Computed example of a mutant assay.
Amino acid sequence: MSNTQPGEALRLAVIISSVREGRFGPVPGEWFAGEARQREDLVVDVIDLAEHDLPAALSNEPSPETAETLAAISPRLEQADAYVVVTPEYNHSFPASLKHLIDWHYTQWRAKPVGFVSYGGLAGGLRAVEQLRPIFAELHAVTVRDAVSFHSAWEQFGEDGRPKDEQGPANAAKVLLDQLAWWGTTLREGRAKNPYQA
């Protein structure tokens, strides 16, 4: 479990899940991380899966390469008090790279909140989000209700990497971050008083 002490700023891991060549994910991901960094109650860690190549096959004895990758990423997930997954929608679902990350970890997610920033075409990635909710529930995580969604995302951002409509996305980000802060604080205090048993 997280070793963050009650009263300290929450550790928020922002996970950029797409690893495709020419991907758009870092644009909304870095923008959202910037919004989160403006808050005094959060410490932000951006985890870009393009920098951590996890294979699909699970093993009790991972290869040396996989073990090295896990050593670089698992402690960061463990230390986090809350997560935001930045995901596109591929064929009505989410990227395989994200499923690999989820499946290689189990206890790290327990009794912690997960929020979503999605992007895509007309659906804005929301179908990917709806598929992720039951997966995180199986891992004993709590997904927050509201998400940030960018429909026709490539048209929504300027060359500076910021949304052309600043107010709408900023308001949505605030709602999501407020929910994560409440759940993150409440669940962290709960884990400290009574360690979660799954």
Rank of each mutant, 00 (worst) to 15 (best):
N91Q: 13
S97R: 06
N91H: 08
L98G: 01
T87N: 11
H105N: 06
S74D: 12
T87Y: 01
E89M: 04
T69N: 11
E78D: 03
F94A: 11
P88M: 05
P95C: 04
Q108S: 03
E65N: 09
T66M: 02
T69P: 11
Y106W: 15
W104A: 06
Y83R: 05
E78W: 00
T66S: 14
I102Y: 12
W109T: 00
E65I: 13
F94C: 10
V86E: 01
V85Y: 06
W104I: 04
I73H: 01
P75V: 15
S74I: 04
L77T: 07
R76D: 14
D103C: 14
F94G: 00
A80K: 02
D81P: 08
D81S: 01
V86D: 00
A67M: 12
L70N: 14
I102N: 15
P88I: 09
A71R: 15
S97M: 06
A82F: 07
E89H: 11
D103R: 12
E78C: 08
E68L: 13
F94L: 05
I73G: 02
L77F: 03
Y83D: 10
A72D: 07
L101I: 08
A80C: 04
A96K: 08
H100A: 15
T69W: 10
E68F: 00
P64T: 09
H105D: 10
E65S: 10
A67E: 15
Y106A: 09
V85T: 02
A96V: 02
Y90P: 02
V85N: 01
A67Y: 03
D81C: 01
R76L: 14
Y106E: 07
I73D: 06
L77P: 04
S63C: 01
P62R: 00
V84L: 12
A72G: 12
Y90F: 14
S74Y: 09
P88D: 08
T69V: 15
S74P: 03
V85D: 02
E65Q: 09
F94H: 10
Q79P: 01
T69Q: 12
A80P: 02
L98Q: 10
